[in-house]
Simulated scan of single mutants.
Amino acid sequence: MSEINEHGTVIPIVQEFATVSTREVETDRVSVRTVVEEKPTDVVARLAREELLVERRKVEREVAVAPAPYEDGDTLIVSVVEERLIVEKRLFVIEELVVRRVAHVDDVHIPTTLKTMHAVVEQDSAQP
């Protein structure tokens, strides 16, 4: 709207400003869940193990003192000793006992009583 005054026509100058605002509006809903998936798999692992091998060696050697265990490289040597009495005795076999097992089967008669049960089914004559 314009005004007229002594200087002429006055036209107001108007300026418009735009403002933008936001608001939350629920448009949809979702639910979230977790799922655990299991997959069988093979795990490769390197396992180290050691094994002891024992070898028995026959040794007939006379010693004055029992030898202590010792190592030869990666091998452990343990001596097993026994004391022996050296006396001049000798054994003689003077008799042998021969023992044999002999099996016998004999028939025996044992008097006894045996019982047998039988079922008897009868129809009741009073019934039509």
Rank of each mutant, 00 (worst) to 15 (best):
L97H: 08
K115N: 09
P69Q: 00
P40K: 08
D124V: 11
V120G: 01
N5K: 10
H104D: 10
D72G: 02
L53T: 09
V54E: 11
K115Y: 15
V20H: 04
L97E: 07
S2D: 08
R100I: 03
D74N: 10
V44Y: 06
V78F: 05
E50P: 00
V105Y: 05
D124S: 10
T41D: 00
S79A: 13
E88R: 07
I4L: 11
E16M: 09
M117L: 15
H7P: 05
P40L: 07
I77M: 06
L85N: 01
R33P: 00
A68P: 02
S21T: 14
E24N: 06
M117Y: 14
D28P: 00
V59A: 07
N5R: 11
Q123P: 05
L53P: 03
L85H: 03
I94H: 07
V98D: 08
P12N: 10
E6C: 10
R33S: 11
A126W: 08
I13C: 03
E50A: 01
D72P: 02
T113E: 15
E88L: 07
V10L: 13
E96Y: 02
V20N: 07
T9C: 01
V93C: 07
T41F: 09
T27I: 12
R101K: 14
D124Y: 04
L91T: 09
V65H: 08
A103I: 06
E71R: 11
R49T: 13
I110T: 15
K58Q: 09
V102M: 08
D42V: 14
S31V: 07
K39N: 12
S21W: 02
T22V: 06
V36M: 04
E55Y: 01
R100N: 12
E55M: 01
L47I: 05
A119C: 05
R56C: 02
E96P: 03
H109N: 07
E38W: 07
I4A: 08
T27C: 00
P12I: 05
V87G: 05
R23E: 12
D107R: 13
Q15A: 14
V25L: 11
R49C: 02
A64K: 13
D106T: 13
T113H: 04
I11C: 03
T22K: 07
V63W: 06
S125D: 12
E88W: 03
F92A: 12
K39W: 06
V20W: 00
V120A: 11
R56E: 14
T116E: 15
V105L: 11
A126M: 10
V87Y: 02
I11T: 14
D42L: 14
A45W: 00
L91A: 04
V32D: 00
Q123C: 04
T116S: 15
E37I: 03
D124M: 05
V10W: 12
A119K: 14
R57K: 13
V65E: 11
V121L: 14
V43N: 05
E95Q: 13
R29L: 01
A18T: 15
L76G: 01
V44K: 14
N5I: 03
V105T: 13
I77F: 10
